[in-house]
Every structure is written in structure tokens, then in C-alpha cells.
Nucleic acid binder design. Structure first.
Length: 371
DNA sequence: GCGGCTTCACATAATTTTAT
DNA sequence: ATAAAATTATGTGAAGCCGC
């Protein structure tokens, strides 16, 4: 029997129970189980403060099963102000993004959240501004972005602050304390690569720095280059940094000419981008040189997950994007749940900076045959 | 004074009804 | 005609009631 309140609301008039819609609601479950809607809610959510006996609980669950009831997320969100959905922004043509997404997805499933993919290339949607609208529309609870390493877009950061949207960047804002982010310790990755090469008896490496677009050197590249210079200094070697535009085969030919002319034992090469490997290996092959046999080669990122599929497999520092994604999602969701039901108060100035705004990830060594 | 439950109020935004 | 209030969808949770 419906309670008096529900009767007054006219929800069970007419005995036959004709409702405005034929969707199953918590009201139907409550009626079937002989309880109020609040109890149905409590059973579903384990609401503290509302006790439910074992029999009642079973009756409710039974009714839910029988009726095939599912919570109306729209209505729930109306009350709680929470959508249990986060937006992930990045370029879907970028394999790194997909790797990060893999981890994000895992974390979200585990924590009961959903992912809304916001392709960055859909400029039609108004760029990233559309993300903020999604938040205002209560469709999402927070935002993750995969940025190019070291990106520091103050305008966007300001916009997220203005909108008071929980936000976390993967790879962006490494030096911006105010913006929570997940970053990579690129310096450490270079040092670790050095250690590995050294442990295998390699000589001090040249640094081949590939780049694709003109403009200011990115933070990540600066970190790596400086780490290389620092390491060479430490080991008393002469640093040799060769910058090569991606796809510039002639520059690669020139490099090999120079390097072979220089002599001095087996060449050792440290490469910033895996994507630069192809040309390097192709030209080496033309000269009958094989990585691991005639020269040492190591990449500082494996961003396309290709290294281990090459022959010989190329040693590299693997950037753990999936794990970074997982961590990012976990931390963003922790932000959301740390202040229950108070999205209007985020972020409160005092909380502005608890520790752990940044998470530093270390690249993992992939010990390929090339060193 | 507590477990187990109900009641009541309220969340949103468009639409409809009632009051001025 | 215009403004104000109620109603609609449905779920949540603080407050309150009942019986032991």
C-alpha cells in the first residue's frame, strides 16, 4: 500500500495504477515491497542513519529484481547535484591519449564513474570552452585533460578556476602549483637511461633531439636536454646534441656520416622520441649497421608502444601513460568526493593547496636488445 | 534511547494553473 | 495581461515517530 503522502501526491490513484509513464520508479518498488521510497533509496545507497532490517532489505531487493528497476540517474542527480561522470579531453588521434584513457577508464569503473570523451579536435564544439559548459549543465562533475608535456595555458587554467570546476591535467602545468597535475620526471628518465647504457658498457651517448614544430622548446624537451648535459658533465664527456626535424632524412644521413667519421669506438645514441627511430635505423641499415651489434641505441620514450616490436627491440624509457591516467582519475574523483554535495564551494581558498597537487611519475626501463 | 521505518522538504526547469 | 505560484518527472536524506 502506498503511504498517505504518496497517495496525496496522486501517484497510486485508481487502483489500476496508471502512471504518467510506464517506467518503473522507486515508488513502484516501494509499493511492491510494502515500504516507503526512502527505504528503497536506503537499501540502494546504504544511507547511514536509515536502518533497514534484513527482511525488509530482501523484500526491496526482491521487488527490484521482479520489476527490473533501475535508478533514474537524472532524478538522482537533481537531488545530489552529482552526475558521476567526468569528461576526458584530449586528441583521439593521439595514441598517448588512448593509453591514458585506458587507465582512466579502469579507475572510473572501479569507483563508479563514467567517462565522457571530449575530443580536442572537435573545434566545432567551441574548443575547451564547451567542457566548462558541460560542467555548468551538470553533465559532468570534473575534467581531465591530456596536455602536451609542459603545457601551461594560463588562460584555460584561469577559466577552470573561474568555473570552479574540479580539474586535473595529465602532463601539463608541471611547474604551476595551483593546477593539479600528473607529470613525468623526465630528468630522472634520462639519468636512468644513462645508468642502463653505462651498465652495459656503452660509451657516453650523443643526444639526438627530434622535433616536429617550430616554436619554443617544450618543458619536457628542456628537462631531458638539460639532464643529458648535466649527466655528460658529471661523467666528463663532451656533450653532443643533434637536433633533427622529424622526417628530415638528409639530416640523419649527415649525422651518420659525422658520427662514423668521428670514430672512437662503438657509437652510442640516445634519442628523445621513438618516432625518430625509424629514419635512424633505416639509414643505419643502409650502411650495414645493426643496433645492439654495431652501435648502441636507446629511446627516451616509447610513446607508440613500438619499441618492443622492432627488431632488434629498442631499449627505452617507457612513460607509463595508463598508470598516469589511472592516478589522474583517482585523484580527480577523490577531489569530488572529499566535499560531498558541495560543488558550489569548490575550490575553497583554504583548501587551495593541500599536498599532493602534483604527482610525479617515473618512466620505466624497457631493456631492449639495442644496448 | 535506539532500531526501523515514515514523513516531509527539496533538488531542476519547463509548463500549467491561479491570483492580481 | 501579467505576475506569481503550483505542478511534473523521481530520488535523497534530515527529522521525526513508534514500540520495546
Amino acid at each position: 500500500m502506498g503511504s498517505s503522502m504518496d497517495s496525496l501526491m496522486g501517484r497510486d490513484k485508481g487502483g489500476g495504477g496508471l502512471k504518467p509513464t510506464n517506467r518503473v520508479t522507486s515508488f513502484d518498488v516501494a509499493r511492491r515491497a510494502g515500504v516507503s521510497r526512502s527505504v528503497v533509496s536506503a537499501v540502494l545507497n546504504g544511507t547511514p542513519g536509515i536502518g533497514v532490517s534484513a527482511e525488509t532489505r530482501e523484500a526491496v531487493l526482491e521487488a527490484i529484481r521482479e520489476l527490473g528497476y533501475e535508478v533514474n540517474a537524472q532524478a538522482r542527480g537533481m537531488r545530489t547535484g552529482v552526475s558521476h561522470c567526468i569528461a576526458v579531453c584530449g586528441s583521439t588521434t593521439n595514441p598517448l591519449f588512448l593509453q591514458a584513457l585506458e587507465g582512466i577508464q579502469q579507475a572510473c569503473v572501479k569507483l563508479g564513474y563514467h567517462v565522457l570523451i571530449y575530443g580536442e579536435e572537435t573545434k566545432a564544439a567551441g574548443g575547451r570552452g564547451g567542457l566548462l559548459n558541460l560542467y555548468r549543465q551538470r553533465r559532468i562533475d570534473g575534467i581531465l585533460t591530456l596536455d602536451s608535456a609542459g603545457r601551461d595555458d594560463e588562460e584555460w587554467a584561469e577559466a577552470t578556476r573561474e568555473a570552479a570546476v574540479p580539474y586535473l591535467s595529465i602532463e601539463g602545468y608541471p611547474e604551476q602549483e595551483a593546477v593539479p597535475s600528473v607529470n613525468v620526471d623526465y630528468r630522472a628518465s634520462v639519468l636512468e637511461a644513462f645508468d642502463w647504457m653505462k651498465s652495459r658498457g656503452a660509451s657516453l651517448p650523443d643526444y639526438l633531439l627530434f622535433w616536429s614544430a617550430p616554436g619554443e622548446e617544450e618543458w619536457a624537451e628542456r628537462e631531458r636536454r638539460e639532464a643529458y648535459l648535466g649527466a655528460m658533465k658529471e661523467f666528463g664527456g663532451e656533450p653532443i646534441v643533434v637536433t633533427i626535424r622529424e622526417g628530415d632524412e638528409a639530416a640523419i644521413v649527415r649525422y651518420w656520416d659525422d658520427r662514423l667519421q668521428r670514430g672512437g669506438g662503438m657509437p652510442a645514441l640516445l634519442v628523445n622520441w621513438s618516432t625518430g627511430l625509424h629514419g635512424l635505423l633505416r639509414e643505419a641499415d643502409r650502411r650495414g649497421l645493426r643496433a645492439g651489434r654495431d652501435f648502441r641505441l636507446m629511446a627516451l620514450d616509447n610513446t607508440l608502444r613500438i619499441n618492443r616490436q622492432l627488431l632488434p627491440s629498442i631499449a627505452c624509457m617507457e612513460i607509463p601513460y595508463a598508470e598516469m591516467g589511472r592516478n589522474a582519475a583517482e585523484r580527480l574523483i577523490a577531489m569530488l568526493t572529499s566535499r560531498p554535495g558541495s560543488r558550489a564551494e569548490w575550490p575553497d581558498p583554504a583548501a587551495g593547496e593541500r599536498s599532493g597537487v602534483k604527482a610525479l611519475f617515473r618512466a620505466e626501463l624497457f631493456a631492449g636488445e639495442s644496448v
